[in-house]
Structures are given as structure tokens and as C-alpha cells.
Design a protein around this nucleic acid. Structure first.
Lengths: 408, 408
DNA sequence: CCGATTTTGTAAAAACTATTAACATAATAC
DNA sequence: GTATTATGTTAATAGTTTTTACAAAATCGG
């Protein structure tokens, strides 16, 4: 039950019904394709005439295409299958990380086209943008060039303002109030630019996933664990952004307000217990405070190395992972108590050790969740090969075409 | 941007536009009354003809009434003012607390009618329901009896399932899986029954408040502090309920996982630091664990008494309040980081000491919020005289008539 | 007091949508 | 080869919003 905001509502106009049904049809084609007009009329519990009218409009606009005729074993005229015309508009997905920046091109429903390329991240914004533009042009040259492109979605490790296209704070890049969208327009011309932080982008990748086996979920949480902890919360099929675009910072709720210092300046944040750095520090016997950087000889040692050692019997490595697992579960319990989601998704390097830590995580979750039901929320691992950040970046560009119209 | 759920969507039918506009008009009359048809056409940026058609339907249905003619200082025909016909359906609001149960009757926009009555809460469900029915009949006898009543909204100190009308767990009442709605139907016959827990009901009271000075907010959080800590989160004008109707339990996120034991069984929950019992225990020099009940001679000593002592110079009382204030702020910071709301509302007895503790609360909030903007979220006190739980209970009954229709 | 002006509210016509009903199309079954 | 069945389209119908015109009711300026 939603309140109508008396200061910001949208009346139903003559074309509103049509727009609503059009978006529903697009969504259904996207999720059920291949699908016939008759299928759609059954799915939507309406008459075929209405479907025909709307579908023919979408065909005219080039958003939908007809494919082969279907084969069914019953008698009767064969259905004409419909597909999203996904070659129509491309999206450039960019994942900016501290060391390297990754770039992927997708079609208009977020399917990967070509290879993922990467280049060393340059911290100087102008030269970063130039590198990015050069790479994008190279990748796109095989696929119709920049003009075939609907927009660019960028995932930034930090805080962004999607409305203005400004990176507010990205400590790992040394960026502060960088007008990234403006810089990009200088290189790419008039093109849609979308910024998002990593946790929320990952959540987007799950909402808009087209993988058939994924259940229809409207409430979920994505927890992305790497150098920091990013969280994206989805409620009612919508990413929670908050008043200042900073909602979802569960990474900085405390496990203990007197705990180890966190990069945010406070003490005992969840992030300070479960980030990759925290796990590594635990392994090297340091306390996890940022005031005690890792010894120089270990800077090249990654969390993947630690997991590998745990697998070949390094008990100290396994202990470090188990500690992280426990803290991960304790923090997850807070997220679950607060949002009561249908699914939890977890991404990040540590998911590669999931078989080693799942039991500890689940035990800790159960320890602090308020009901048995809350404790048994499905936790799903999103492995790195699925590239949730890149897919989320692509969704920033491709999803709006399928979104529900704002009404009432 | 909301995703259309391919397994649970609502098509636009012939009557959908009309329904949308009808609800918008009802909402605008409710929030702007007295208001004329011409005013509405300006607010909605549409033609007067459309308004006339919809308003006349609402007049026929008896949901809206015409009032006096307005006086304006310009020339031209005087407008006919419209009002919600609030005498049409009444609501019974019930606030069940451990010691006493309060009961209020409201009109169809949640305005109080008559006096608030109360009776000692009986813990045996059947006799509780009988007492409640007797009181309700008595109060309603002056206002058309039960038949004039649209429904009953009940606020329960515990976990409920609004769908089935079952109180899942209410430790303070000793209730577990009590089919309250069913019992009530036995007494009241076929009447709408709505259950909600206290934190979420308080949030409802703010969403649906008709107080003119309240800003139009779509994202807010209500924190209700009494024996426990209840939290209601509003996102996009909608109360967050979660998959199992247990969302919003920020009361049990930890400040320190090794902290004092909480009534939920875990350690160091926010609630264990800031509930009234916690504050009182601190004053009496006990640790706040539930394993150490207050000494017998102090059971009649309430948080109000403590506040009174603090006001007349009892430094131990003031210290106890300041400790609570600090923990309140530290936990609020987590709520703010997680949800980035436009407003925070705080209710409960401790708000009577707000002038004594505001500075400490704000300081602690700033200490742990991630940005300056987050730290300066407006915190508004809702005093007990506004009866947020009762108003929320009434809203459970009255609000659906004004809610946005589910579409797409 | 009276006509010009302005605002409110209504009525009729127009434009557009969903819905219904009828029908053409294209396949299988027997 | 005809009956049957399912798909997709077309035309007619009913229910919206929107436009246009106008009646109703007030003020203003003489």
C-alpha cells in the first residue's frame, strides 16, 4: 500500500494505459522470449487484439522483432515468435577498480558482445577518460561504432551522485568531486552517462538478470565484498537510493563500536572485519586497523592466494577465513533483520572459498537473526565469472527501457 | 526506476486510468481541503471537465461532500469547496501495551472522535477480546454503533502476520501464535481487522498524518523506544514489510556483539542499550543484562521518574540519560547509513527529555554517519500526546481508501 | 443598475484505448 | 478432403481523457 505523494504525483493521461501495457509486454517478451502474441495474451489474461495492437507498434519502433514460427505438437496455426530486437542499441559497461578498469559491450538486454577488455586505471581523471574513450572506440569499431551505442554505465568504488554524474568520494582512486559525466561527454559527445557505486550496481545486475532460472524476486540484498563492503538493497523491485543517494551503506554498521578502526574513520564497522584487507591482516597476525598497513613483502599477496593456501592445508589461512566467515554472518544477520529480503546475494573474491566458509556463515546468521524464517533466507553466491559489476553497469543503460512507468 | 515483476504484475484495464485519477483526487482533497474543483485542476495540471466527472462520482459514492462556497478577493464565480466526507466510516484504533490497552475512535481520515479510553490488558486472549469488544461497543454507542465502523486497527508489542491476523510472538503479553483476528471476528462479526507492530504502526502514523505543516516525505524512519525498540522504515511512500513481515528490526542490530544480553537472546543489540529498562538499570547501577532484574523496590520507578529526577539535579539520573543518548545516536547512525531517509522520527517516553539529550544524540550520530549530509538528517520528536501508535492503528483502517492503485 | 470581465463549473463533441465479436489464416487430425 | 483447432487481424463497441463551447456567478468600473 503506497501513499500518493501530494507534492509529486503523476496523473493518468490518455496514453497512460497504453504505456503501462507496452512496458509489461516488453518485460514479458524480455523474460519469456521466444514468445508469441497468443502466449502474451494468456500471460496477461487479456484478449489477443490488444496484444496485436501494442506489439505492432513495438515492431514499427524496431524494439521487437519477429522470428521463426514456433513448432507445437497440437493442431492449429503456428505461432509467430517475438524477440527483443537486442541489436538495436548497445551499452558500454565500465567497472572502475583501483588497479585496472574493465570494459564490456552488451546488447540492449545486457548480453555480452565480444570480449571484456581492461586497462590500467589512471588516477588523473582527464587521462583516465581519454584511455577509456580510446578503448571504447576500439571495442565498438566492430559493432557499428559509438553511434550504435545507447549509453555508458560506470561502476565506481565509492560514492556517486547519479543525478549530476559526479563522483563525490572514491578514496581508492583519490577522486573527490570529479565531474565524470561532464568529462566523458567531452570525449563521447552527447550520450547517456550513468554512474553507480559497486554494491548498488551489483544489486541492479540481479534485478535485471535475464537468466531463466532466477526466481522472480522483488526484495533482495546484494553484498559485495572486496577492498570495501558494498551493499545494494532492492525493495519492491526498486533499488533503494535514499535522499542523498547514499542508502545501503550497511558496510559501516558496527559489529562492535570499540572494534578495529575502519577506513571511514569510525571503529568496528562490519567492513573492518570482513574486507579482504581485514582477512589478510588477520592471516599476517596484524590487528586490522588501517594504522597498521601490511608489511611490504606481503603487498602482492592477495585474498586468492590466501584461499589457495587454505585449500592446501595452511591452517592459519583457514582460521583467518573462518573468522571472516563468522563476522560476515553476524553482519548479514543485521542486514536480514533490517530488510527481511527474499534472497541474499554475495559477491567478491571470498565467494571462491564458499565451500570452506558456508557453515560458519550460516551458523553466525542463525545466531543473531530474530526468527527461524529470517535465519534461513537463501544465500546465493555470485561468482566473479558472472561479472556482476559489469552486468550492473550495463543494466544502468539497458534497464530503463523496460521499467514500470511512474504513475500515481 | 522499478522493475515490472513478470510473475506478479497488473495490466492497465479500461478503468485503470480512472481509478488512478480518482485516488489522486481523493488524496489531494484529503491533504488540501477545503479545495475547489478548479484548485484541483490546477494542482493536477489538467482540465476542469475531467475533475468534474471524477468528483461527481465521488459525491455520488458519498466519499466526498460539498461545503460552503469559498470567498476570494478576485472577481469571478465563487468556488464550491470540497471535503472528504469523513463521517462516512469510522475506525477503531487499539494500542495493546503490557499494562493497559488504549482505544480511540477516529473518522475516516484519522481524526480523533470522543475520548481515548483504556482498560487493564488481560493476558488471556479470549477475555482480552471480550473486554475490548465491551469497551468498543460502549465508545461507539454515541457514534452510530459498530455498523458505522469500517474496521479495527490493532498495534501489538511484538511480531505479527498482518495477512493472517495472527500474533506470532509478543513476549510482553505472553502471546505466541494467537489468532487475534479470528477471535475478534467472533466478537465483532465480519469487520476488517488490521494488525501491526508498534514501530511500523508509528511509521504509518507519520505517512498518513494530515497535519498541514508536515512536509511531503516519501522516505522516513520512525524509531519508537519503550520497553523495546521498534523501527518502521518508509521507502517510496510505502512501509517496508519484507518477505516474512519482519522487516525493520533495527532494534537488534548490535552496537557490540559482546555487549549486554538482549531479550532476543543475542548480545549487544541496540535495544539492550537504549530501552527504558536499560536506562533504568544504568541508573540503579546494574548491568543491563536481562539476567539481572531490577531490585523489587524499584519496579514502580519509571523512566518518567528518572527524567524528573534528572531535571531537579540528580546527576546520576542525568548521566544515565546521557549514556542512553549516546547509544541512541550511535545506533541511529546505522539506521541513517543504511536507509538515507529524509526524516527520522523518534517516539517514546525518553522524548520528554529531548532537551536534555539532543546534543549527545546528535554528536553520536555525526560520529558514525558517513557523510556530513547524512549526519544532518532532521530528527523530529513525536511526543506521547500525539499518540503515534493509536494514530498508526487508525491509519491501518483508513489509509487504504487513499492509497495508490497497484499498477504495472 | 448595467455591461464588461473573470472565474467556476458543466455539457457536448472529439480523440484515443481497451474490449468484444467476427473473421481470415494456417496448421493438424481423421 | 473436410472438420477441427489455434493464431493473428479487423471492425464494431464501450469507456476514458481531452478539447471546445457555454452557462453560472461573482467583481469592477462606469
Amino acid at each position: 500500500m503506497r501513499k500518493i505523494n501530494p507534492k509529486d504525483f503523476t496523473m493518468a493521461k490518455r496514453g497512460t494505459s497504453r504505456e503501462i501495457n507496452r512496458q509489461i509486454i516488453l518485460t514479458l517478451i524480455r523474460t519469456h522470449q521466444p514468445v508469441s502474441r497468443a502466449d502474451l495474451s494468456r500471460l496477461m489474461d487479456t484478449n489477443r487484439a490488444n496484444i496485436t495492437l501494442r506489439v505492432n507498434e513495438l515492431l514499427d519502433e524496431g524494439l521487437v522483432r519477429e522470428g521463426v514460427q514456433g513448432n507445437q505438437k497440437v493442431r492449429g496455426r503456428k505461432p509467430t515468435f517475438l524477440y527483443i530486437n537486442s541489436t538495436k542499441g548497445l551499452a558500454i559497461a565500465v567497472d572502475i577498480r583501483a588497479s585496472r578498469t574493465f570494459l564490456m559491450v552488451t546488447d540492449s538486454i545486457g548480453n555480452q558482445i565480444g570480449e571484456i577488455v581492461s586497462f590500467a586505471t589512471k588516477f588523473e581523471p582527464q587521462s583516465f577518460v581519454e584511455s577509456l574513450a580510446w578503448q571504447a572506440r576500439k571495442v565498438l569499431s566492430d559493432h557499428g561504432g559509438l553511434s550504435a551505442c545507447d549509453g555508458i554505465g560506470l561502476v565506481v568504488p565509492g560514492m556517486v551522485d547519479p543525478r549530476t554524474g559526479v563522483v563525490i568520494k572514491a578514496p581508492k582512486l583519490g577522486w573527490r568531486n570529479v565531474a565524470l559525466a561532464e568529462l566523458l561527454e567531452g570525449e563521447f559527445g552527447k550520450i547517456e552517462i550513468h554512474l553507480e557505486n559497486s554494491g548498488r550496481a551489483c544489486a541492479m545486475s540481479q534485478i535485471w538478470s535475464t537468466k531463466g532460472d532466477l526466481p522472480a524476486h522483488n526484495d533482495s540484498v546484494f553484498v559485495s565484498i572486496s577492498d570495501g563492503v558494498g551493499v545494494g538493497v532492492v525493495i519492491n523491485g526498486e533499488l533503494v537510493r535514499g535522499k542523498h543517494n547514499t542508502a545501503g551503506e550497511f558496510g559501516h554498521i558496527p559489529l562492535s563500536i570499540d572494534g578495529p578502526e575502519c577506513s571511514c574513520g569510525a571503529n568496528g564497522c562490519w567492513e573492518a572485519y570482513i574486507s579482504n584487507v581485514a582477512t589478510l591482516s588477520r592471516y599476517f597476525g596484524r590487528n586490522t586497523s588501517r594504522n597498521q598497513p601490511l608489511p611490504l613483502e606481503t603487498v602482492e599477496f592477495t585474498i586468492e592466494d590466501l584461499i589457495a593456501r587454505a585449500r592446501i592445508g595452511d591452517s592459519k589461512a583457514l582460521t583467518a577465513l573462518h573468522s571472516t566467515a563468522r563476522y560476515l554472518g553476524l553482519g548479514l544477520a543485521s542486514v536480514i533483520n533490517a530488510t527481511d529480503p527474499a534472497y541474499i546475494y554475495i559477491g567478491g573474491e571470498i565467494t571462491e572459498a564458499w565451500d570452506l566458509i558456508e557453515a560458519q556463515v550460516r551458523e553466525a546468521v542463525n545466531e543473531r537473526t530474530l526468527t527461524r524464517e529470517l535465519g534461513s533466507v537463501p544465500i546465493k553466491i555470485v561468482p566473479a565469472v558472472e561479472h556482476p559489476r559489469l552486468r550492473g553497469a550495463a543494466a544502468l543503460v539497458t534497464a530503463p527501457a523496460f521499467a514500470a512507468p511512474k504513475v500515481a
